[in-house]
Simulated assay, not measured.
Amino acid sequence: MNLPDIEQTCLELGQRLAAYLQDQQLEQPLLVGIRTGGVWVAERLQEQLHTEDGVSSLDISFYRDDFTRHGLHPQVKGSELPDSIEDRHIILVDDVIMSGRTIRAAMNELFDYGRPASITLVCLLDIGRRELPVQPDLCGVRLPLEEGQLVKLSGPQPLELTLA
């Protein structure tokens, strides 16, 4: 399977996001990346968009629903968000969307900080296999994988995609 050029995909995704923000007339959006890969992708998008607040980050470790299966990740770093996101337009960024559970956890955490005006979901890769009805508003590449295949994004400089 040929994997996409991730840096080029980020560039194209940033261009599509800029057009989307202009079309939707979303002013002063807050870019929020989900640790760690989503933060790396959000930083690439920030380089193109130049949003006022830079990139905020979410560590969803305490919001996950799979503690009994996997336990708590030992390197919890905490989230870095403004004190309130009340009435802000949030651009929620993740590297890979698969089941939808990470996004559900991220939205739960966001609502603990306030009620955003809107949340736009942007993902670099969509590999399908949804367990929850969550779909990205913008996606860099749809990459259906075979059973047992996984992708791993490493970075931050350069971003590289590998198939496991």
Rank of each mutant, 00 (worst) to 15 (best):
I97A: 09
R115H: 14
Q28A: 12
E131L: 13
R129H: 10
L81I: 01
Q149P: 01
A106K: 02
I119S: 06
R16A: 11
L143C: 14
R88A: 09
H70F: 11
L81R: 10
E80I: 12
G128T: 13
E86P: 10
V151G: 01
G37T: 05
V32F: 08
C10N: 14
T36H: 09
P4Q: 03
L3A: 02
V39M: 08
Q46W: 02
Q28R: 15
I60W: 09
L17E: 03
Q157V: 10
S61G: 15
L163C: 07
Q135P: 05
Q28T: 08
T162D: 01
Q75K: 12
L138Y: 11
R101H: 15
D94W: 11
E47D: 15
P156M: 05
R69E: 10
E52S: 13
N108P: 00
R101K: 15
F62A: 10
G148E: 07
R64Q: 04
R142H: 12
V55C: 09
H89M: 00
V134L: 14
P133Q: 04
L143H: 09
P29A: 02
L49I: 00
G148N: 12
R130I: 09
V93C: 00
L30H: 04
E109Y: 05
P156L: 03
E12Q: 15
D112G: 02
S118A: 10
G140D: 06
D53G: 14
G78M: 05
L159V: 02
K152R: 13
I34L: 12
R16L: 05
Q28H: 15
Q149R: 01
P82N: 06
P74D: 05
H73Q: 14
T36F: 05
V32P: 03
E80H: 15
Y20Q: 04
V122Y: 02
I127K: 12
L163R: 06
L110S: 01
E27F: 00
T102R: 07
G33P: 11
L11F: 14
L13Y: 15
E109V: 05
S154E: 12
L3Q: 08
V32N: 04
S99D: 04
S99V: 02
L45W: 08
L3H: 11
N2L: 11
L31M: 03
A18G: 11
E147V: 10
L3D: 09
